[in-house]
Structure formats: C-alpha cells, structure tokens
C-alpha cells in the first residue's frame, strides 16, 4: 500500500520534472544544452595550467640565454671541454618518453575505475622516472670527473643550469608521483574522483615533453 503510494507520487509530472533538474544547478537548462553545472576545466587544473605557463617562461629564459651563448660561440663545445654523452642520454630520453606513456595509461586506468591497473602503471612510471634520474646523476658524476663543472666556463654553466633545472623538476614530479601512488594504493581514487592523478599526469607530461627540446638543444646542437 505504502509502496504504491510512493510509486504514484514518483511518477507525477511535477515530481518527475523536479527529478530531471540537476541537483546543484537548479533552474532552467542553459541555452547551450549543457545540463551539468560543472566547469569544463576544474579550478585545480586551471591553476596548474597557469603554473605550467610560468614554468614554460622560466625555461624559455634559460633557453634564450643558451641560444645567445651557443650562437655567439665560434666553436661549440669549446676547445678542451669534455663531450656530452649523447648515446646514453638518447636511451635515457626513450626511458623518460616511455614514462610519459605509462603515466597516460595510469590516467586512463583511473578514468575507467581500475585501481589495480592504476597502481601498476603509476609504479612503472615512478620506476622509469627514478631510472632516468639515476642515469642523469651517474653521467653528471662522470662529467665532473672529466672536469666539466659549473664554474669551468660558459659550456659547463649553461649545461648544468639548463639540465640541472630540468632534473630538479623531474625530481619534484617523481616525489609528487610517489605521493599519488601511495594514495592510489590506499584506494583514494575512483572513476568519479581522480583529480590527484590528473594533475600529477599534467605535470609529468610537462617535464617529459620538455626533455626532448632540451636534449636537442644542449646535446645535439
């Protein structure tokens, strides 16, 4: 009896219309046909986008300085300076690009609500990022051993400033990634709530995308 009354009440036209209206938005439907009141880009993503724009300008300044030194120099690398490890760094570039791919797969797993896959892909990304940093650190130690230091000349100064700044960014991104990974292992992300993974993926994509540009400029030019 009660169930029938509830059912009758639910199929009444006024109640049905009320149920059709989005809970948060209220009022009439927007003219564009958008029924959801959620913004196209969340505030967190927009904030990170602004931060990344500032980061791009920061690296643009460093690249601008590098261009001046590189084009003004009659011989590059300058005489009596060690050559950079182009081959090993090419392999390292592939490793970092692969980490960008695995990060993308992690994001897709988060979107589809697959927590086990998410943890797996995040772990692989963190591992690849750590390997990249490890190889970079090893190569730096070798270069210092060969006499290329920050104060050994313009060549060393531009190399360590540009590549060093990128390495610091990768390190920061790796720390963030590990924090996201720990949260994912605790089951903090779901199909509907994965903003943490999304933001981390944006930042990771930035550091991955920046590297081939720096590699081409510093190692191959």
């Amino acid at each position: 009896m009660v169930r029938e009354a509830v059912a009758r009440r639910l199929i009444e036209p006024e109640v049905a219309e009320e149920l059709r209206t989005p809970a948060l938005g209220g009022g009439e439907e927007p003219p564009t046909g958008v029924t959801s009141t959620q913004p196209a880009v969340s505030n967190a993503r927009l904030a990170l986008l602004m931060f990344l724009a500032a980061e791009v300008m920061f690296f643009a300044g460093l690249i601008g300085a590098f261009i001046v030194f590189r084009l003004a120099s009659p011989a590059w690398p300058p005489p009596f300076q060690p050559r950079l490890p182009v081959g090993v760094t090419a392999i390292n570039t592939v490793i970092l690009l692969l980490s960008g791919l695995t990060m993308r797969l992690a994001l897709m797993a988060a979107r589809r609500g697959k927590p086990t896959r998410l943890v797996q892909w995040l772990s692989i990304t963190a591992l690849l990022g750590t390997v990249f940093l490890g190889i970079q650190g090893y190569e730096w130690l070798r270069l210092i051993g060969f006499g290329l230091t920050l104060s050994s000349g313009v060549y060393g100064a531009t190399f360590y400033t540009l590549i060093g700044c990128h390495a610091v960014h990768v390190f920061g991104a790796a720390v963030w990634l590990i924090a996201v990974l720990l949260q994912a292992r605790r089951g903090r992300f779901s199909e509907r709530s994965y903003a943490g993974v999304q933001l981390c993926a944006m930042y990771w994509t930035f550091v991955v995308g920046l590297w081939p540009v720096l590699y081409g400029l510093v190692y191959l030019s």
Partner: peptide, 28 residues
C-alpha cells in the same frame, strides 16, 4: 575542453532520465 564538455553534456546518456522509476512502478 569546453567543446568536449559541451558535446558530452548534450549526449542523451549524459542527461538525467526518469527510467529507473519505471522499475519502481512495475514493482509496485
């Protein structure tokens, strides 16, 4: 992103429907 979200929102599956109520009606 704006175009994508607009497209998604205009898809029939994205709109709130009253289909589950049919089940309640049948059940009752």
């Amino acid at each position: 992103n704006y175009r994508r979200s607009t497209k998604r929102a205009s898809e029939p599956s994205a709109r709130t429907t009253i289909a589950p109520l049919t089940w309640i009606h049948k059940e009752s």
